[in-house]
Simulated assay, not measured.
Amino acid sequence: MSETFVDLGVVTTPSGVLVLGMAGWIDQWPEHGDPLSVRAKAAVKQGGGHLHEPADGPSQEWFCEAVAVPAAADRPLQVRAMTWDSYDGPVVTVLEVDLHLPWPGGPDGEPVLLGDLPVDRCGMVLGDALALDSFVGLSGESIDGLADVTYWGKYEDDAHACFGGDSMSQVGGRRGPYGRLDLPLHEALALADQLRDWLAKGPRTGLVISVDAHTHFHLLERAGESHPLLTGQIELERSQIMHLGWDPGDHSMRHHGERAWDQVYPVTLEQAGTTTLLRWTIPTEAEDPEETAKPPHACA
Score class of each variant (00 low, 15 high):
residue 103 W to Q: 09
residue 152 W to K: 02
residue 145 G to H: 12
residue 147 A to W: 00
residue 112 V to D: 07
residue 148 D to F: 06
residue 128 D to Y: 02
residue 103 W to Y: 10
residue 112 V to Y: 13
residue 135 F to N: 00
residue 145 G to L: 14
residue 114 L to H: 13
residue 104 P to K: 06
residue 113 L to E: 15
residue 145 G to R: 11
residue 108 D to Q: 14
residue 105 G to A: 09
residue 131 A to I: 03
residue 144 D to G: 11
residue 122 C to G: 01
residue 122 C to L: 01
residue 143 I to F: 01
residue 130 L to A: 09
residue 125 V to S: 02
residue 163 F to R: 11
residue 120 D to K: 01
residue 121 R to A: 00
residue 118 P to C: 04
residue 111 P to Q: 11
residue 148 D to I: 09
residue 111 P to S: 07
residue 126 L to R: 14
residue 118 P to Q: 07
residue 152 W to C: 02
residue 164 G to D: 09
residue 108 D to I: 14
residue 116 D to S: 15
residue 120 D to E: 01
residue 116 D to V: 10
residue 118 P to T: 04
residue 108 D to Y: 14
residue 159 A to S: 07
residue 128 D to G: 06
residue 105 G to W: 12
residue 103 W to P: 09
residue 117 L to P: 11
residue 117 L to S: 15
residue 143 I to H: 00
residue 110 E to T: 15
residue 151 Y to L: 12
residue 138 L to S: 04
residue 139 S to C: 08
residue 131 A to F: 01
residue 161 A to I: 01
residue 128 D to V: 06
residue 151 Y to M: 10
residue 139 S to T: 09
residue 119 V to E: 07
residue 136 V to Q: 08
residue 153 G to C: 06
residue 129 A to H: 12
residue 147 A to M: 00
residue 142 S to C: 06
residue 122 C to P: 00
residue 121 R to D: 01
residue 147 A to I: 01
residue 131 A to H: 00
residue 149 V to P: 02
residue 112 V to R: 15
residue 119 V to M: 10
residue 149 V to K: 02
residue 149 V to W: 02
residue 162 C to I: 03
residue 144 D to E: 10
residue 155 Y to T: 12
residue 154 K to R: 12
residue 126 L to D: 15
residue 142 S to W: 02
residue 146 L to F: 03
residue 157 D to T: 06
residue 104 P to L: 03
residue 121 R to C: 00
residue 119 V to A: 04
residue 146 L to E: 10
residue 108 D to E: 15
residue 115 G to K: 14
residue 128 D to T: 10
residue 137 G to R: 07
residue 112 V to E: 15
residue 148 D to E: 07
residue 111 P to D: 13
residue 140 G to N: 06
residue 154 K to H: 10
residue 149 V to E: 04
residue 131 A to E: 02
residue 158 D to C: 00
residue 112 V to K: 14
residue 134 S to N: 07
residue 151 Y to P: 03
residue 120 D to F: 01
residue 115 G to V: 13
residue 124 M to A: 14
residue 163 F to Y: 11
residue 115 G to M: 13
residue 110 E to H: 14
residue 144 D to F: 07
residue 130 L to H: 05
residue 155 Y to F: 12
residue 152 W to L: 05
residue 151 Y to G: 05
residue 140 G to Y: 07
residue 107 P to H: 04
residue 159 A to Q: 05
residue 123 G to H: 03
residue 116 D to G: 13
residue 119 V to I: 11
residue 145 G to A: 11
residue 131 A to Y: 00
residue 152 W to A: 03
residue 147 A to D: 00
residue 141 E to C: 01
residue 118 P to W: 07
residue 121 R to M: 01
residue 111 P to H: 11
residue 150 T to M: 11
residue 148 D to V: 12
residue 137 G to V: 03
residue 132 L to G: 03
residue 141 E to A: 12
residue 133 D to H: 05
residue 163 F to V: 09
